[in-house]
Design a protein around this nucleic acid. Structure first.
Length: 236
DNA sequence: GCGACAG
DNA sequence: ATCTTGTCGC
């Protein structure tokens, strides 16, 4: 079936009703400093003879050892266009199944996802989709602002802070927002603990591996998890 | 109409 | 995000 932007928006509004209600009731599943295992999720794309493929990476980061300890790479042809605000529908095709596998295999405390969570037009960014779909805490980390204005270090919409604006050690700016089951302050504090470069370690490493995988892994039409390339040397 | 617009 | 060469700077 062809992708329908209007139906996707309807779906997000329905999800928002549930997620925001839980957030009001302070249904918190994760608190800062309780993390044992963090899984960084990122997606890279590659055009190959008329078909566009998505390379999804799930990287397991050990909070105690402060290093990456495992990773998975998954590929599949993408079937949804990129539309601001609807990024989740494009990336979930590969991140959804991959996140489920990551939970079964690693039992992570929280997911770090590239992209916004709460700081989204309907409060349902990619990070929220991942967390809600898997009922696992998640935090969104974006490199560009999508909505709102910046006031006192936060992205604000209608007077409500939706994301923390953080200046990274490399001088760039990132926007950290709650995905699912996490408060804004806990999301901010947690990301800060792993911020050594432009992105928190679990995401920086997942990003490096997803890009490197494009020339080391043959993509498949349908969703498939490949043997993880021995790339943990990419800064880990 | 104009500007904005995650990855 | 991706397409792309060299190049300026820490």
């Amino acid at each position: 079936m062809k992708f329908s932007a209007s139906r996707a928006i309807m779906a997000q509004k329905l999800m928002a009703r549930i997620v925001l209600k839980e957030l009001e009731k302070k249904t918190v599943l994760f608190k800062a400093s309780t993390e044992k295992a963090i899984v960084g999720l990122d997606v890279a794309y590659r055009r190959l003879s008329g078909t566009e493929y998505a390379y999804g990476v799930a990287l397991l980061y050990d909070a105690a050892k402060k290093s990456a300890v495992d990773c998975m790479v998954a590929t599949r042809a993408v079937c949804v266009p990129y539309i601001p605000g609807l990024l989740a529908f494009r990336e979930m095709a590969v991140l959804g199944p991959l996140a489920v596998k990551a939970i079964e295999k690693w039992r992570p405390s929280v997911f770090f996802v590239d992209g916004h969570g709460l700081s989204h037009p309907r409060r349902i960014g990619i990070a929220t989709h991942v967390g809600f779909a898997t009922r696992t805490p998640s935090i969104g980390v974006a490199k560009k602002k999508l909505v709102g204005v910046i006031r006192n270090g936060y992205v604000v919409v209608d007077g409500e802070p939706l994301a923390a604006v953080i200046r990274t050690p490399t001088g760039s700016t990132i926007y950290v927002s709650p995905g699912y089951g996490v408060t804004l302050e806990d999301a901010r504090r947690t990301v800060l603990k792993y911020l050594k470069h432009k992105l928190p370690e679990p995401l920086r490493l997942a990003d490096a591996i997803s890009k490197a995988s494009k020339k080391l892994v043959e993509p498949s039409r349908d969703f498939k998890i490949h043997p993880c390339p021995r790339l943990l040397e990419v800064g880990a």
